[in-house]
């Protein structure tokens, strides 16, 4: 931890605050993954970590190395850009997969009820809302 002594006070404090804010935001996001009730709600939680959490820690890293090496160190911004561009893709495919699996299970339950042989035994995960049917 010797190289921190070379950091001026203002930089050290800003870096510390940024890192703490980023880590805390990420932790809150993960807590949401634990606490929220339905799958679609839970999916919102990690975006805290991918936006503000990543942003803060990347900024802190950029500031730290820029001051330590007395030149502009910008390559961490690639991580921020990459995460911003890829998160929508992941989440979009995941939501679609979840909707698809829900609809398949609903259809199976309905057909089972129709047969009469298997009364609806498979309990569906209760969502607060179904997607509005496209009309």
């Amino acid at each position: 931890m010797n190289e921190f002594a070379k950091l001026p006070d203002w930089a050290a404090i800003i870096i510390a605050i940024l890192i703490l804010a980023g880590a805390a935001t990420t932790l809150i996001g993960s807590l949401g993954l634990w606490r929220l009730n339905s799958f679609y709600e839970r999916l919102h939680a990690p975006t805290l970590g991918t936006t503000l959490g990543t942003g803060c820690i990347v900024l802190a890293s950029m500031l730290c190395f820029s001051v330590l090496q007395t030149r502009l160190v910008l390559h961490e911004i690639l991580i921020a850009i990459f995460v911003t561009v890829t998160t929508p893709i992941t989440l979009m495919i995941l939501v679609r997969a979840a909707l698809f699996r829900d609809s398949v299970e609903r259809a199976e339950t309905l057909s089972n009820m129709h047969d009469g042989s298997h009364p609806a035994t498979s309990e569906l995960e209760v969502n607060h809302s179904r997607p509005p049917e496209a009309t």
């Binding site: 921190f4 950091l7 050290a12 404090i13 890192i19 703490l20 880590a23 932790l27 820690i57």
Partner: peptide, 15 residues
């Protein structure tokens, strides 16, 4: 401030 930074880094790692 270096000590503060070291501590907050440790805390961030725990988080």
């Amino acid at each position: 401030s270096a000590i503060f930074l070291t501590w907050s880094l440790g805390l961030a790692k725990i988080f």
